[in-house]
Nucleic acid binder design. Structure first.
Lengths: 129, 129
DNA sequence: TATGCTTCCTGTAGTCGCTACAGGATCAAG
DNA sequence: CTTGATCCTGTAGCGACTACAGGAAGCATA
C-alpha cells in the first residue's frame, strides 16, 4: 500500500496527473487512509503504468481507460482491443503522411531563404497564390 | 469591403475562428459599419489567408501573427523569418521521427493480435514489463 | 407591411490532457 | 517544537479552436 507520491514514482505518472485521471474517472478511485489520503495497492499502481504505456503509444485517454476496463473484465474482448490498436495505427500512419507533406512544403519554403536578400522569399511564398 | 461571412468564404477561415483571432489580437481589428458589423477590406482578407497558410504549415498562431507583423513592417527582418521556418522544420522532423517509432511499436503490438485467441496478445504486451 | 429566414453580434463554456497554482492540513525527522 | 516535505481540495491556465445562448439586424417574399 503506497501513497500517491510513491504511486507516482513507481508508475511514472505525475501526482497531479493521477488525481486528474481519478477526477475524470479514467482509473478506479483508490482507497483512503484514516487521515483522508489516497492509498494505492500494487494493482492500482500497475493500472497507472498500463495507462501510461497506452498514452505513450498515442492512445487517447478514453481508449486507454476502456482497454483497462476490458483487461479487468470477465472475458477479454479481443476484437475490440484489436480495433483500437488498428485505429491507432491508422491514425499514426496518416499523421506521419500529413507531417511528411508538411515537411516537404517547409523545406521548399526555407530553401530559398538567404540572409541579406532585399526581399524575403519565404514570406513571398507564404503570401503567393 | 466584405462581411465576416464573405471574409470567411474567401479566406477559408471559419467565422468563429476569425472572431477568435481578433479577440486574441492575432490579426488587426477590422473596421465596423454603421450597424456595428465587422467590415473586411481585401487586404484584411489576405491577412486571414496568410494566417491560414501559416497554420496549415504547422506554425503556431503567435508565430503566424508575428510573420504577419513582419510582413507589414517597414523593412522585413528576413533572419527572423528564416529562424521561424527552420524551427518549424526541425519540429516537424522530430515529430515525424517520434511518430515513426510509435508506428513501429504499434505495428508490433497489433501484429500478434488474432480474433478468437483465448488470450489477448495485445493486452498482454501492454501489461508486460 | 408583415413574416420568416439568414446573418450577424457578444459572451460564455466546452474540448483534450494535462499543469500550476492557492491555501490549507497533516506527517515525519531532528 | 519547529521545520520541511507531502498531502488535500478547488480552481484557472495552456493552444486553437468550437459550440452554443440569447438577442439584434438585414433581406426576400407574400
Amino acid at each position: 500500500m503506497a501513497t500517491i507520491g510513491e504511486a507516482s514514482l513507481r508508475s511514472g505518472v505525475e501526482i497531479e496527473t493521477i488525481r486528474y485521471y481519478e477526477r475524470k474517472g479514467f482509473v478506479p478511485k483508490p482507497g483512503r487512509s484514516g487521515n483522508g489520503r489516497r492509498v494505492y495497492s500494487p494493482s492500482a499502481i500497475a493500472n497507472l503504468r498500463f495507462i501510461k504505456r497506452c498514452r505513450d503509444l498515442g492512445f487517447p485517454l478514453h481508449v486507454a481507460s476502456r482497454l483497462l476496463v476490458i483487461s479487468m473484465g470477465e472475458q477479454v474482448k479481443c476484437g475490440e482491443v484489436q480495433n483500437f490498436g488498428q485505429a491507432q495505427l491508422a491514425e499514426t500512419r496518416s499523421k506521419i503522411a500529413e507531417l511528411e507533406s508538411l515537411r516537404t512544403a517547409l523545406e521548399e519554403l526555407v530553401s530559398n531563404c538567404e540572409e541579406g536578400s532585399t526581399n524575403c522569399p519565404m514570406l513571398e511564398k507564404l503570401w503567393s497564390q
